[in-house]
Design a binder for these strands. Structure first.
Lengths: 163, 163
DNA sequence: CGGCATCCTGTATGATACTG
DNA sequence: CAGTATCATACAGGATGCCG
């Protein structure tokens, strides 16, 4: 049997739960549509109708989330030249949006391993063709497992100091 | 100025959008509450009332999501001995739940960098004390950037073969 | 093609109250 | 402490139709 044991750990400081960045992030891309639009942006989709077709959402939903993602700085709306003379608009990943890649890859791989999905495509490194994953590491490059994680209060933050 | 340029890429195969593992994953932990409950589990929380207090959600919400997360295999409900003689129940991460760590770390770091949050705590490696991140790598350990990602159709999957 | 406006349904979640 | 039940609200998202 695969090991499935409890990992004994201390409970993280309570102040970690206030102003949680995960909470904020979920507020921006925490809906199915918004997350799948981000997926599509990484897949190379740029045009409105392609988002609608490939994410399989209603145009209204695409409209709302594309606007919100632009407002949140993950996507940028930019003009481009059509084959015709019309000016068209496309959505591309900003630097901030590109930084979202680990989230997308992590969600993809977890679902592939644990959510019982038939996945028809793989994400690989173009230079060597091997699958791409996320790893959890510290600054020294050590692989960090759950048991060696530590949650520490930042010294420059006061809970309720007298100022 | 920080570079914020478009990364030219091919559009991924359309069949990647069917049965998408990101979609499945979002169906399981795609709500704010469910994701924050997972965060709390990584923070070391195990008891019902601690989830309610630390995630700051209604008991009903905690009840629903804890049950669903157990049903989805991310958490396990287990008895433990109280200081008194009563038997109590706690929720702990299963192996599948522990594998969710990269998602939580990635969401945390993206929000910290891009979502303008005051974060009072850090996540570090206990052995060296340095911050913990996610990296996107291939099997050979190469760091993979957006420009070197490739989306390839798996050969063993037929789109609509006659079988 | 690339949206926005409106209507309608389902889900997520908080508030409150009740049970063992 | 550890939930469950009920009610009410807010938001996600589909369907439809209109507009440049």
């Amino acid at each position: 049997v695969v090991q499935d044991e409890a990992v004994p750990r201390e409970v993280a400081p309570r102040q970690l739960t206030t102003g949680c960045p995960i909470d904020k992030t979920m507020g921006i891309v925490g809906s199915r549509s918004a997350m799948l639009i981000m997926r599509e942006a990484f897949y190379g989709t740029t045009r409105f109708d392609d988002f609608v077709a490939r994410v399989d959402i209603a145009p209204a939903t695409a409209s709302v989330h594309l606007r919100d993602l632009v407002a949140s700085g993950l996507l940028a709306k930019e003009p481009y030249r059509d084959s015709a003379t019309r000016t068209r608009w496309g959505y591309r990943l900003t630097r901030s949006g590109q930084d979202f890649l680990p989230v997308v890859i992590a969600l993809f791989r977890w679902g592939e391993q644990h959510a019982d999905v038939e996945v028809g495509t793989d994400i690989v490194h173009d230079e060597c063709g091997t699958p791409v994953w996320t790893t959890v590491v510290c600054e020294h490059g050590h692989d960090v497992s759950l048991g060696s994680l530590q949650f520490v209060a930042k010294v420059d933050v006061q809970l309720d100091s007298g100022k």
